[in-house]
Amino acid sequence: MGTKLRTCEEVEKGFSNYIKLCLRHASRDYFKKLYRDSVLIPFDECEPKIAINIRTSTTITFEDFAVLSQAIETLSFSEKRVLYLKFFQDKTDKEIAQFIGVTRQAITKSKSNVLVKLKNHLEIQS
Rank of each mutant, 00 (worst) to 15 (best):
M1K: 13
M1S: 12
G2S: 04
G2I: 03
G2C: 03
G2H: 01
G2R: 02
T3R: 06
T3L: 07
L5F: 11
L5Q: 05
C8S: 07
C8R: 08
E10F: 08
E12C: 11
E12N: 13
E12Y: 05
G14F: 08
I19Y: 07
I19H: 04
L21F: 09
C22S: 10
L23T: 09
R24D: 02
A26D: 09
S27N: 14
R28W: 09
R28D: 10
R28A: 14
D29S: 06
Y30P: 01
K33Y: 04
K33Q: 03
D37N: 11
S38H: 11
V39H: 02
L40T: 14
F43E: 14
F43K: 13
D44P: 10
E45D: 11
C46K: 06
E47P: 07
E47C: 13
E47T: 12
P48V: 09
K49S: 10
A51Y: 15
A51W: 15
I52T: 09
I52H: 04
I52V: 15
N53T: 13
N53L: 15
R55D: 05
T56G: 14
T56D: 06
T58L: 10
T58S: 08
T58N: 14
T58Q: 12
T58F: 13
T59Y: 13
I60H: 03
F62T: 09
E63C: 15
D64Y: 12
D64Q: 14
D64M: 11
A66G: 02
V67F: 12
V67A: 10
L68F: 10
S69C: 04
S69D: 04
S69F: 11
Q70C: 10
A71K: 03
A71N: 04
A71M: 03
A71E: 01
E73A: 08
T74L: 02
S76H: 08
F77L: 02
K80I: 01
K80S: 00
R81G: 02
L83E: 00
L85H: 05
K86W: 06
F87K: 14
F87Q: 12
F87T: 15
F88A: 14
F88D: 05
F88G: 08
Q89Y: 13
Q89W: 06
D90Y: 11
K91T: 03
K91N: 01
K91C: 03
D93T: 11
E95A: 09
E95F: 06
I100F: 00
G101S: 00
G101A: 00
V102E: 01
V102F: 05
Q105H: 07
S110V: 04
K111N: 06
K111C: 15
S112F: 15
N113E: 07
V114W: 00
L115V: 13
L115I: 13
L115T: 08
K117Q: 04
L118R: 01
N120T: 12
N120W: 10
H121L: 13
L122K: 05
I124P: 05
Q125Y: 04
Q125V: 07
